[in-house]
């Protein structure tokens, strides 16, 4: 069973901006799913459609086999969303906010679970303060607690760790791992790619409203985790179209004065010499050379064609 099944989803905003273009995506039940993409790729639009704060233009979504657009209430009760933007009710305390949240999902009060959430998200000490007095990090943790208070089957986190310090971030992820181990499906977007690589077993990348790839994280890492030859030059580089076409077999990326080229293996022999010669011919002898193991970030940049 899939926690989410998204078919041919489109979103065109009133101003003509196409945010999602024919996105189809499967999120398996029980997975820890990373949705990655550069800013403005359409991640938040996708999540907002799931959360019912933005209307889709066309397409269909099913949650645990139920049509999201026709059985909204059923689906919403099984979904918890942490919105990207901080939101808090200035009139109430965290404890009250959690009680109201749970009630609004049609569930009876459960003080033990509320206490546990406050504890796990380190808000117990602040449970009776008015939310206005909370710091940014606390408000964000309260958002996470709010999304979990009705014990959803699917938890969606849109950039949940922005502005949360490293120590807390780690503990937040430990908590998410536990929930995931207990059967909760978790879908998250994040800018911290190492985090996604470490936590998630499934990954999808979207760019400019289109799905680039969606597959198990290991597969993506294995398939693309080659090494790169990085050549440093004295001057910043710019790739002309001609450079790009000649070096296209090595997926050239430029970072200021550094040129990185992907190494391929043929009969277990690395082609570093071919790559080096090709680069030297175009740009001359570099001032320094290094070999880097590719990580998710390189893959991400390569797939989204973002060389900045």
């Amino acid at each position: 069973m899939n926690a989410l099944e998204i078919n041919n989803l489109y979103k065109v905003y009133g101003n003509g901006n196409v945010a999602l273009q024919d996105v189809s995506l499967l999120v398996p039940e029980g997975s820890f799913f990373a949705l990655l993409g550069p800013n403005g790729a359409g991640k938040s639009t996708l999540i907002n459609i799931l959360a019912d704060t933005v209307n889709a233009s066309s397409g269909s979504v099913s949650l645990l086999g139920h049509d999201l657009f026709h059985e909204r209430a059923w689906c919403k009760r099984r979904m918890g969303v942490v919105p990207q933007e901080i939101a808090f009710d200035p009139f109430f305390s965290p404890r009250e906010v959690l009680k109201f949240s749970r009630g609004m999902y049609g569930q009876k009060a459960d003080d033990a679970w509320v206490d546990e959430l406050l504890e796990r998200l380190e808000l117990t000490q602040h449970a009776h303060k008015i939310t206005r007095q909370l710091s940014g990090g606390m408000r964000r943790r309260l958002l996470v607690a709010q999304a979990l208070v009705h014990r959803p089957k699917l938890v969606i986190l849109d950039e949940p760790t922005a502005g949360v310090d490293v120590e807390l971030r780690k503990r937040l992820w430990d908590f998410m791992r536990e929930l995931n181990a207990a059967g909760t499906t978790i879908l998250l977007t994040t800018h911290y790619l190492e985090e996604a690589e470490e936590l998630c077993d499934q990954v999808a990348i979207i760019d400019q409203g289109k799905l680039i790839t969606s597959r198990p994280m290991k597969e993506l890492i294995r398939e693309v985790a080659s090494s790169s030859l990085c050549l440093r030059y004295a001057e910043p580089l710019q790739l002309s179209d001609e450079d790009k076409s000649i070096l296209s077999a090595f997926s050239p990326r430029v970072y200021d004065n550094q040129l990185c080229l992907t190494l391929n293996k043929q009969d277990s022999r690395s082609d570093f010499d071919t790559v080096y010669q090709a680069a030297k011919q175009r740009f001359g002898t570099p001032v320094d050379v290094s070999i880097r193991q590719e990580d998710l970030e390189d893959v991400f940049l390569r797939l989204t064609g973002d060389s900045s």
Binding site: D52, T53, R72, W74, V81, P83, A87, D89, S101, M104
Partner: peptide
């Protein structure tokens, strides 16, 4: 209006309340 300015109205939209 407070809900809109503070962005809290998203919780109402996200909830299963009809």
């Amino acid at each position: 209006i407070v809900g809109k300015i503070m962005n809290v109205h998203v919780f109402l939209l996200m909830s299963p309340i009809s």
